[in-house]
Computed example of a mutant assay.
Amino acid sequence: MHERVTIRPADLSEVEAIASMWQETSKWLHSKGVDQWQYPADEEKITRDVTSGTAYVVTSAGKYLGTITVDENADPEFWAKKDLPTEAIYGHRIIILPHARGKSVGATVLDWASRKAEKAGKRWLRVDAWKTNTELARYYEGQGFEHVRTVDLPHRRSGALFQREAGTITGAGPGFLGLESPLHEPDGTRSTEGQWGWYAG
């Protein structure tokens, strides 16, 4: 197990690294017979997420362990008005690299996101998962998420919806240092003013 991981905002120079994490995970999933993410990463979308300050990378000892994007953007095809979508933070593009699996890094990333949702005054941390990835569904349930429902739309491969109460911490993974920073400046550079960190574990 890693002693502690760092979760920090991604920089524009790391868009390619995040896309590479997607590709590596896609190949790993294919080797396991899972049809999830069998297409190239959308680097334009990753760039938008990095620029908006919602894409994060997970590192330890200078090495990438994974990535996560968290925002308040509820997918309207999945989350209905009855779900009170503004009361949640949503996790997207959650990747733990194959070499970091089995070390409970995923549990740490979800604990970090849960704490982040709580700090934002939200009630829920929510994710949507690939409908056919039953192992991933079991994993989320094992991490304290409840299965809300599965939205089965023919043009969407994701749609298994899960949520966990904001602030719920399993403590199953290594501790983390969570860094935050203001958004990028208009010229695309990231301001370092006001950067702060918080610890857990």
Rank of each mutant, 00 (worst) to 15 (best):
D152H: 14
N133P: 04
G167T: 15
N133G: 03
A107R: 00
A160T: 15
R156W: 09
G188D: 14
I169W: 15
G144L: 06
K131G: 12
R149S: 00
E146S: 09
A166L: 12
L177F: 05
E118V: 04
D128I: 00
G178P: 00
Y140N: 13
E165M: 08
G175P: 15
G121S: 06
D128E: 13
G142L: 08
E185W: 02
G171E: 07
H147G: 09
V151P: 07
L179I: 15
G167H: 07
E141V: 10
R156P: 11
G167V: 12
G121F: 09
K119M: 09
G173M: 02
T134S: 07
K122W: 06
W112Q: 06
W130V: 15
P186L: 04
R157C: 12
S181K: 14
S114H: 05
F145C: 11
L110G: 01
H147L: 09
P186S: 11
R149F: 01
G106M: 00
D187Q: 05
T108N: 02
A137L: 08
V127H: 10
G144C: 03
L136C: 08
H155S: 14
T170N: 09
W112S: 03
K116P: 03
T134I: 09
L161S: 03
A160Q: 10
V151I: 08
A113Y: 15
L183D: 10
F145D: 15
G178D: 13
K122N: 07
E141L: 05
V109K: 00
P154Y: 09
E135P: 01
H184A: 07
D111K: 02
T134W: 01
D111S: 07
Q143S: 10
A107P: 02
G121A: 04
G167Q: 13
Q143W: 04
K131V: 08
S104K: 02
G171P: 10
F162W: 10
